[in-house]
Amino acid sequence: TTYYDVLGVKPNATQEELKKAYRKLALKYHPDKNPNEGEKFKQISQAYEVLSDAKKRELYDKGGE
């Protein structure tokens, strides 16, 4: 599973699309609303952290993490 899959976006997604997808999923899986989905929330946050940063995203796209 790639970070793009976690957020449900395509690899060519814009920053705005990433932000929108992250917010939607973060609300859905937030531990306050969904106590059993803490791990999913962490995955979503990690994916967004990497993909929202241009340098980290470039490194990730080249095969790094």
Score class of each variant (00 low, 15 high):
residue 48 Y to L: 03
residue 31 P to F: 06
residue 24 K to G: 08
residue 53 D to Y: 02
residue 4 Y to E: 01
residue 46 Q to F: 09
residue 10 K to R: 11
residue 13 A to S: 06
residue 55 K to I: 13
residue 12 N to I: 05
residue 2 T to S: 14
residue 14 T to Y: 01
residue 65 E to S: 12
residue 19 K to R: 13
residue 32 D to F: 08
residue 3 Y to G: 01
residue 29 Y to T: 04
residue 19 K to W: 15
residue 52 S to K: 09
residue 19 K to Q: 12
residue 10 K to L: 12
residue 47 A to Y: 03
residue 32 D to M: 11
residue 60 Y to E: 03
residue 32 D to K: 12
residue 47 A to T: 01
residue 29 Y to H: 05
residue 63 G to E: 12
residue 46 Q to E: 15
residue 10 K to T: 12
residue 38 G to C: 13
residue 53 D to T: 04
residue 51 L to G: 00
residue 28 K to P: 02
residue 12 N to R: 05
residue 52 S to H: 06
residue 27 L to W: 12
residue 12 N to H: 08
residue 35 P to W: 06
residue 10 K to H: 12
residue 54 A to F: 09
residue 52 S to C: 08
residue 43 Q to I: 12
residue 56 K to V: 05
residue 64 G to D: 12
residue 45 S to A: 12
residue 7 L to C: 01
residue 14 T to I: 03
residue 8 G to L: 05
residue 58 E to H: 08
residue 2 T to I: 05
residue 43 Q to A: 13
residue 41 F to E: 01
residue 35 P to L: 07
residue 39 E to C: 10
residue 45 S to R: 15
residue 28 K to F: 10
residue 25 L to Y: 04
residue 3 Y to R: 01
residue 25 L to W: 04
residue 13 A to I: 05
residue 31 P to G: 09
residue 11 P to V: 10
residue 18 L to N: 00
residue 2 T to G: 06
residue 30 H to A: 09
residue 1 T to M: 14
residue 7 L to F: 02
residue 26 A to Y: 15
residue 41 F to Y: 08
residue 46 Q to A: 10
residue 25 L to I: 04
residue 33 K to I: 15
residue 56 K to Q: 11
residue 61 D to N: 04
residue 19 K to F: 14
residue 12 N to Y: 09
residue 24 K to R: 14
residue 47 A to L: 02
residue 37 E to G: 13
residue 26 A to G: 04
residue 22 Y to I: 02
residue 53 D to M: 03
residue 62 K to G: 07
residue 2 T to P: 04
residue 40 K to A: 09
residue 29 Y to P: 01
residue 46 Q to V: 13
residue 15 Q to V: 12
residue 41 F to G: 02
residue 21 A to W: 02
residue 58 E to S: 07
residue 56 K to Y: 06
residue 65 E to T: 13
residue 62 K to P: 04
residue 11 P to T: 08
residue 17 E to P: 00
residue 34 N to S: 09
residue 39 E to D: 12
residue 29 Y to R: 02
residue 36 N to Y: 11
residue 15 Q to R: 08
residue 15 Q to T: 10
residue 32 D to E: 10
residue 42 K to R: 15
residue 27 L to D: 14
residue 17 E to T: 05
residue 5 D to A: 08
residue 41 F to R: 04
residue 14 T to D: 05
residue 23 R to Q: 15
residue 49 E to I: 09
